[in-house]
């Protein structure tokens, strides 16, 4: 047993865990903010929305679909020049961020729009009848009422981001994916591969656990 553990470079494992966590959290935060903004715009510009605008709605809808359609692994290469421009390098955990964000923000925008559309139209009607402004409707009605769905989408996105970081790892972004690939796969060190996988699972379960807990807390339906 100890023989197997001895094959593992624990220092490298620790760094990899940190890198994966860093990539996941930063890209998650930025993607949620961008996705939320795009999602609201998508929602309010719908035909029966608060600020109907066909042109903006159609363009945004198209862009979001476009970026969601490009497979992540291809997206990384497509945006390499942009990455270089933004972070000054094409290697390392930070270099993976633009691709991670660009691939997940549109996903969150879509989830956000769906969540907002699920808010009972009657409550929006009631708040209009109370004299609420559109901003008040968004902040006092839409967000609070859509909160459980918005949070569970963050969970879903967080988990898929962990998966993406592993893919990014294969092309030099570091993290657990990189470790599993470089040492585990390429050098046939099975112990490293399984241990890295184990930690990926741990991160995924933690995200799921936190997400479920928060949703349960805020959902008063």
């Amino acid at each position: 047993m100890s023989e197997i553990f001895n094959q593992i470079d624990w220092e490298a494992m620790k760094v990899a865990i940190e890198e994966t966590t860093y990539m996941s959290i930063i890209s998650l935060l930025v993607a949620v903010v961008i996705g939320l903004i795009l999602g609201i715009i998508l929602y309010i510009t719908q035909d029966d929305g608060l600020y109907p605008n066909k042109v903006i709605n159609k363009i945004l809808d198209f862009i979001i679909n476009l970026f969601r359609a490009i497979p992540f692994i291809i997206l990384i290469f497509i945006i390499l020049p942009l990455t270089n421009l933004l972070v000054g390098t094409m290697l390392g955990a930070t270099a993976a961020l633009p691709a991670l964000i660009i691939s997940s923000a549109p996903f969150y925008a879509r989830m956000c729009m769906i969540a907002l559309n699920e808010v009972d139209k009657g409550t929006i009607e009631a708040s209009k009848a109370m004299g609420a402004s559109n901003i008040q409707i968004i902040t006092k009605i839409l967000f609070p009422e859509a909160k459980p769905a918005l949070i569970s989408s963050i969970t879903v996105m967080g988990i898929s981001l962990v998966g993406y970081t592993a893919m990014a790892g294969c092309i030099g972004a570091g993290g657990l994916g990189n470790l599993a690939y470089m040492y585990g796969f390429a050098r046939r060190n099975m112990a490293v591969m399984y241990t890295a996988t184990f930690f990926v699972l741990v991160i995924v379960f933690i995200i799921q656990g936190i997400g479920d807990y928060v949703v349960k807390k805020v959902d008063k339906r």
């Binding site: 009657g122 409550t123 009607e125 009631a126 009422e145 909160k147 008063k220």
Partner: peptide, 15 residues
């Protein structure tokens, strides 16, 4: 704000 309204399905905020 000076015209109240109530509804068949109440339209309360569950949150």
């Amino acid at each position: 704000t000076k015209i109240g309204m109530i509804f068949q399905h109440f339209n309360l905020l569950w949150s």
